[in-house]
Simulated scan of single mutants.
Amino acid sequence: MEEIMVENKNTDHCPVELTALILGKKWVPTIIFSLKDIELRLGELQRLLGCSKKILIEQLNILVLHKIVENRKVYKGNTVESYYTLTDCGKELLPILKDMKSFGCKFEENIKK
């Protein structure tokens, strides 16, 4: 399972860089934003995002590993259903994503001028 890599875990890193490492992963901002108000099963999240199952599982595993997303498993007979939701840590990223969206919209307007 892939982690968000830093060269040496014993040294201090720039907090902005660590946040960028998290949010810079493909599909991560969209996953976090999709889970902002709701708990979703893997298939529901995949249909919502339109990405491949393989990529989605990889990114969800990273987010679960770093306690940004929680994977709640429900056992029903011989099947297991996975439900994904944001942790409190994950919810702290929502205002950052909102600010990034706002900046992106303004930046796009400036490019078009």
Score class of each variant (00 low, 15 high):
Ile96Ala: 03
Gly104Trp: 09
Glu44Ala: 12
Lys73His: 06
Ser34Pro: 02
Val6Asp: 03
Lys106Asn: 06
Met100Lys: 05
Gly43Met: 08
Glu39Gly: 10
Gly43Asp: 12
Lys67Leu: 13
Gly50Arg: 07
Lys73Val: 14
Asn78Met: 13
Gln59Thr: 01
Asn71Arg: 15
Leu63Pro: 01
Leu35Gln: 01
Ile22Trp: 06
Arg72Cys: 09
Leu93Asn: 00
Cys14Thr: 00
Ile31Arg: 03
Leu23Pro: 05
Lys67Ala: 14
Ile96Gly: 02
Asn10Thr: 13
Thr87His: 00
Lys76Pro: 00
Ile96Ser: 02
Ile96Lys: 02
Gly50Tyr: 06
Pro29Cys: 08
Pro95Asn: 04
Gln46Ala: 04
Thr11Pro: 00
Glu92His: 12
Asp37Tyr: 14
Lys36Cys: 03
Pro95His: 05
Ile68Ser: 02
Ile38Ser: 13
Ile32Val: 14
Tyr84Cys: 03
Ser34Tyr: 02
Met1Asn: 13
Cys89Asn: 11
Lys26Trp: 03
Arg47Lys: 14
Tyr84His: 02
Trp27Ile: 06
Lys101Trp: 05
Gly77Arg: 11
Val74Gly: 07
Ile96Val: 15
Trp27Glu: 05
Lys9Gly: 04
Ser102His: 07
Val74Arg: 15
Leu40Glu: 07
Ile32Ala: 04
Glu108His: 13
Glu2His: 06
Lys98Phe: 04
Asp88Trp: 04
Asp99Cys: 09
Val28Asn: 07
Ile62Glu: 07
Gly90Arg: 04
Thr11Asn: 10
Phe33Asn: 03
Lys106Phe: 08
Tyr84Met: 04
Gln46Thr: 11
